[in-house]
Measured scan of single mutants.
Amino acid sequence: VTVHVDGVEYDFDNPEEALKFAKKVAEDKNGTYEVHGNQIRVT
């Protein structure tokens, strides 16, 4: 699973970890996250 944040890609073997990371980053920057299959984009 790849999490995209501001043009940087973070790869996770564990989808739950990826989702947790995306949620935290989105909260920290008052943004949102979208899941597209095995890609998660934080905006």
Rank of each mutant, 00 (worst) to 15 (best):
V1P: 05
V1F: 15
V1K: 04
V1G: 04
V1H: 09
T2V: 12
T2C: 07
T2W: 06
T2H: 06
T2M: 06
T2I: 11
T2E: 03
T2D: 01
T2N: 04
V3L: 02
V3M: 02
V3G: 00
V3Y: 01
V3A: 02
V3D: 00
V3E: 00
V3P: 01
V3S: 00
H4D: 06
H4S: 10
H4E: 09
H4I: 15
V5H: 05
V5F: 09
V5D: 04
V5Q: 02
V5S: 04
V5P: 02
V5N: 03
V5T: 04
V5A: 05
D6G: 08
D6A: 07
D6P: 02
D6Q: 06
D6K: 04
D6N: 13
D6Y: 07
G7L: 05
G7I: 03
G7P: 02
G7R: 04
V8S: 07
V8Y: 11
V8W: 09
V8N: 09
V8D: 08
V8K: 13
E9G: 09
E9D: 10
E9N: 10
E9V: 15
E9A: 13
Y10F: 11
Y10W: 09
Y10H: 07
Y10P: 00
Y10A: 02
Y10E: 02
D11I: 14
D11A: 14
D11K: 15
D11H: 15
D11P: 14
D11T: 14
F12L: 02
F12H: 02
F12I: 02
F12R: 00
F12S: 00
F12Q: 00
F12E: 01
F12Y: 05
D13A: 12
D13I: 10
D13Y: 08
D13L: 10
D13G: 08
D13R: 09
D13T: 11
N14Y: 07
N14P: 01
N14G: 09
N14A: 07
N14D: 15
P15T: 12
P15E: 14
P15M: 15
P15D: 08
P15I: 15
P15F: 15
P15W: 15
P15C: 13
E16N: 08
E16Q: 11
E16C: 11
E16T: 09
E16R: 07
E16Y: 10
E16K: 07
E17S: 08
E17L: 08
E17A: 10
E17T: 08
E17H: 06
A18L: 01
A18V: 01
A18S: 02
A18D: 00
A18Y: 00
L19Q: 04
L19V: 08
L19A: 04
L19H: 06
L19K: 05
L19T: 05
K20E: 14
K20T: 12
K20W: 10
F21Y: 07
F21D: 01
F21Q: 01
F21N: 01
A22Q: 01
A22K: 00
A22E: 01
A22L: 02
K23G: 05
K23M: 13
K23Y: 06
K23W: 05
K23Q: 13
K23P: 01
K23S: 08
K23I: 14
K24G: 07
K24S: 10
K24N: 08
K24R: 11
K24L: 09
K24D: 08
K24M: 11
K24Y: 08
K24A: 12
V25S: 08
V25M: 14
V25P: 00
V25E: 09
V25W: 10
V25I: 13
V25K: 09
V25Q: 12
A26K: 03
A26F: 03
A26R: 02
E27T: 12
E27D: 11
E27C: 14
E27H: 14
E27W: 12
E27V: 10
E27M: 14
D28V: 10
D28N: 10
D28S: 13
D28L: 14
D28Y: 11
D28H: 10
D28Q: 14
K29E: 07
K29M: 15
K29H: 12
K29T: 15
K29S: 13
N30C: 09
N30R: 10
N30M: 09
N30S: 08
N30G: 14
N30T: 05
G31W: 10
G31L: 07
G31I: 04
G31A: 09
G31Q: 05
T32A: 09
T32E: 07
T32S: 13
T32M: 09
T32F: 12
T32R: 12
Y33R: 01
Y33G: 01
Y33T: 04
E34K: 08
E34A: 08
E34W: 10
E34M: 09
E34D: 06
E34T: 13
E34Y: 12
E34C: 13
E34Q: 10
V35A: 05
V35S: 05
V35E: 05
V35I: 14
V35R: 07
V35D: 03
H36I: 15
H36N: 13
H36D: 14
H36T: 11
H36Q: 12
H36R: 11
H36S: 12
H36E: 13
H36F: 14
H36L: 13
H36P: 00
G37D: 08
G37M: 05
G37P: 04
G37N: 05
N38P: 03
N38R: 06
N38V: 04
N38Q: 07
N38T: 09
N38S: 09
Q39V: 15
Q39E: 14
Q39D: 11
Q39R: 07
Q39K: 07
Q39G: 05
Q39S: 12
I40P: 00
I40D: 02
I40W: 03
R41L: 15
R41S: 13
R41C: 12
R41H: 15
R41K: 14
R41P: 03
V42G: 01
V42D: 02
V42M: 03
V42I: 12
V42S: 01
T43L: 15
T43I: 15
T43S: 12
T43G: 07
T43H: 15
T43Q: 12
T43W: 15
T43D: 11
T43F: 15
T43M: 13
T43A: 07
